[in-house]
Amino acid sequence: MQELHNKIKSILENGSASLFIAYQKSREGKITPTFITKPEQSQKAYFGDDCKQNLAVYIHKQEVKNFGKVGIFANIYTLKSLLQIYAENQIRDDYLKVVTINPNGAIVEFANFMEIENYVNENKPAPNPEDMERVEKLSNLSREERWDYWLNELSTCIKCYACRAACPMCYCTKCTVDCNQPQWISTPSHSLGNIEWHIMRAMHLAGRCVECNECARVCPMDIPLNLLTVKLNDTANIEFGQQAGLKGELDYALSTFKVDDKENFIR
């Protein structure tokens, strides 16, 4: 921990960042993000297995961008998110200082996204077996059963948009659900509006989701939202060999085609 504190301190002192985003642990044991601007505050930072939040979500915030150069402590999912949003042109290499702790407990500071790409590919997180099992189970249901399952799950949605707020890939200034000229997605939390919203959210994350599972974790109604995107990611990988968050350059199945695609209709 001391090493991490020293690292943050030195980053803030030598001016490679004027804000450092990290985790902190309260006396009650609650993990929250912390925004460190002064070197002497760096001992606030904490890291442990319980640090689940995806801190990459803060990178897009105007309040954070106003600091100019920003440092961030990233777990593996945050790293994947950063890589994906870098590929999507949302952050610049020279404005970000990224620090992580590798599986051996050593501090790693990345010079650029190339290094992040290499690190992420060497330390790819294994899919969550529990989630995979649930996806598998759902896939084995009939189409009607699956539809009923989701109708039931999504009926409890209260449209608080916590899933959107927690997702680093949901960085649009104006979300489709906020478009009211015309109002494509109805906003009240009745079943039509809920289904429209969640189908849209899942489709917008298809092949872009890094599977940090923040959406499910933050859902106050405990809807297993991540299963939708996990399944879509799986499909993008099987059908098009595309995985999100592993490359610093854009590789998006829904906007590209390959000349050697196995399907003939593309030719």
Partner: peptide, 10 residues
């Protein structure tokens, strides 16, 4: 409202 993700370019 364009956020410049440039997924549309390809």
């Amino acid at each position: 409202t364009c956020v410049g993700c440039f997924l549309c370019v390809s």
